[in-house]
């Protein structure tokens, strides 16, 4: 009898939380679309702002779309190039040194937990030290620093699930550890690694605090790494704080664009990773 009541209780709890999460998500998307769609136009995504980002009702946010893409694609690539070898090193080469490995994980978790504004401030200090101005380059470096721990730890969590038997079998075949990393572990973990990259990309493109001091903001499209650049989150922030009603509405259109970009990249990556998924061994 009590067993049954318990089961019903937890089932109801599960249903309520699932509905709550789904509802919250739908509500967010709905409010973005409801407020943003009227302002969304071809002009909005194909032109740079006219009359300033703060008061301008004309033009679009092409500067922020391009800036955000430059910034997040470059920093995700850098973080991938550094993060993947590090995660592999941890799970193929360092497997024996369990205590060291645990400390490394602990430090990475701390780095993951540090708010992005702190990375922004750190990037700012470095910039001043090297005499750099607010620029795309400074932003890319800062955002890379801030997503590397995310990238490494989420790949690490996936690589950790590879059974030690696969490592032992591969070693017995006479593979070197580098071959094991990039020919075996990588194939086995491709879907998880793609998820890790996506997670990092999402953080990179969605973050406002770390780019505020480092990348700056501008109405034009950056032409080189030393130019400042606009980003979508900051565009939303500035537009929302405008005293002009139409500009505030444009903020929701910008949010819709940001959401759409993330959606598009997620879908593309899923399709890519599904092609490799079929070789994965289920242990």
């Amino acid at each position: 009898m009590i067993k049954k009541a318990e089961e019903i209780f937890f089932r109801i709890l599960m249903i309520i939380s699932t509905v709550a999460i789904a509802a919250a998500l739908l509500l967010i998307i709905f409010s973005i679309l409801y407020n943003g769609l009227p302002a969304l136009s071809w002009e909005m995504i194909s032109q740079i702002p006219k009359g300033g980002f703060y008061f301008g009702k004309e033009g679009g946010i092409l500067n922020a779309i391009i800036g955000s893409l430059y910034l997040s694609v470059c920093s995700t690539l850098i973080a991938l190039l550094i993060g993947l070898p590090v995660a592999m090193y941890m799970n193929v080469f360092m497997i024996k040194h369990r205590n060291t490995l645990n400390s490394v994980r602990f430090i990475l978790d701390i780095l993951w937990g540090i708010p992005s504004i702190v990375y922004g401030a750190f990037g700012f200090v470095i910039m001043i030290y090297f005499g750099l101005k607010t620029s795309l380059l400074a932003g890319i470096i800062t955002v890379s620093l801030f997503i590397i721990p995310i990238m490494v730890r989420s790949m690490d969590e996936v690589l950790k699930t590879v059974p030690s038997g696969l490592l032992e079998s591969s070693l017995s075949l006479g593979s070197t550890k580098t071959e094991i990393s990039f020919k075996i572990f990588l194939r086995q973990c491709i879907p998880g690694i793609v998820t890790a990259v996506l997670l990092s990309f999402g953080r990179a493109i969605g973050d406002a605090a770390s780019v505020l001091f480092t990348t700056g903001y501008t109405d034009s499209i950056p032409e080189s790494l030393s130019d400042p650049a606009a980003t979508l989150p900051l565009a939303i922030f500035f537009q929302l704080s405008s005293p002009v009603e139409e500009v505030r509405q444009r903020a929701f259109a910008s949010a819709a664009v940001l959401t759409f970009v993330i959606l598009l990249i997620s879908i593309a990556a899923r399709i890519l990773s599904a092609r490799y998924n079929r070789n994965k061994i289920k242990f």
Binding site: P163, G165, L166, E168, S169, S170, L171, S172, L173, G174, S175, T176, K183, I184, R187, Q188, N279, K280, I281, F283
Partner: peptide, 28 residues
Amino acid sequence: TKIRQKMGLLSQRPYPLPMSIYGNISYG
């Protein structure tokens, strides 16, 4: 790695490589 190539290992349960059947044999 050269010494290990002199010894094949068969473990308690199979651990095929995440590749095709052909790929598994040709890997070595």
